[in-house]
């Protein structure tokens, strides 16, 4: 199953990159995508895909607009701090434990913390412990509970 899915994805990617549809290109794309998925078919789809994955992708797409808005805000924040003559930064390190369990949830939370204003993930492990470097002290330092709640909502179905 994973072999077939991987070779289909690889072949579509080949067609996208080659832009031409001659016989020799299609043949070599077919051969090389079959060869690649023969070597590494367990990397892309490690386990069987079920219905909860589709739900999770749908929830992730609904989460994206909020993330894009946060990226724009954080860029104006960075521009303000870098161009201000006195450079208003006051860094500190925050540790906390998120109650996420799955690797996907932890990866999404770590990248989201990096992209939201004022905070960068320094360390994250598979138990859900996070070390975060924040550029301001105080109320804004702790990466919002709302990010955790949002990511937990994406992950949600996995525990059931």
């Amino acid at each position: 199953m994973s072999f077939v899915l991987t070779s289909i994805v690889m072949f579509l990617f080949w067609m996208l990159l080659s832009e031409e549809f001659t016989f020799i290109l299609i043949l070599s794309g077919l051969v090389s995508s079959l060869f690649v998925s023969f070597i590494s078919h367990d990397l892309l789809f490690g386990r069987a895909i079920d219905k909860s994955d589709i739900v999770r992708v749908h929830r992730f797409i609904r989460y994206l607009p909020w993330l894009l808005w946060q990226i724009i805000i954080s860029n104006f924040d960075i521009a303000y701090r870098a161009l201000h003559p006195k450079m208003p930064i006051d860094p500190c390190i925050v540790r906390f434990n998120s109650e996420l369990k799955s690797e996907l949830g932890i990866a999404i939370l770590a990248n989201s913390i990096t992209l939201t204003p004022g905070t960068v993930t320094v360390m994250a492990n598979e138990k859900g412990d996070f070390v975060v470097h924040s550029i301001v002290k105080g109320d804004k330092a702790l990466p919002g509970i709302d990010i955790q709640a949002k990511v937990k909502k994406i992950e949600g179905v996995m525990d059931v």
Partner: peptide, 16 residues
């Protein structure tokens, strides 16, 4: 001033 705060512009400004 230091490495950890240099990560902020590298991770956000460049990505955006």
């Amino acid at each position: 001033p230091d490495f950890y705060s240099r990560i902020h512009p590298a991770g956000k400004g460049d990505t955006m």
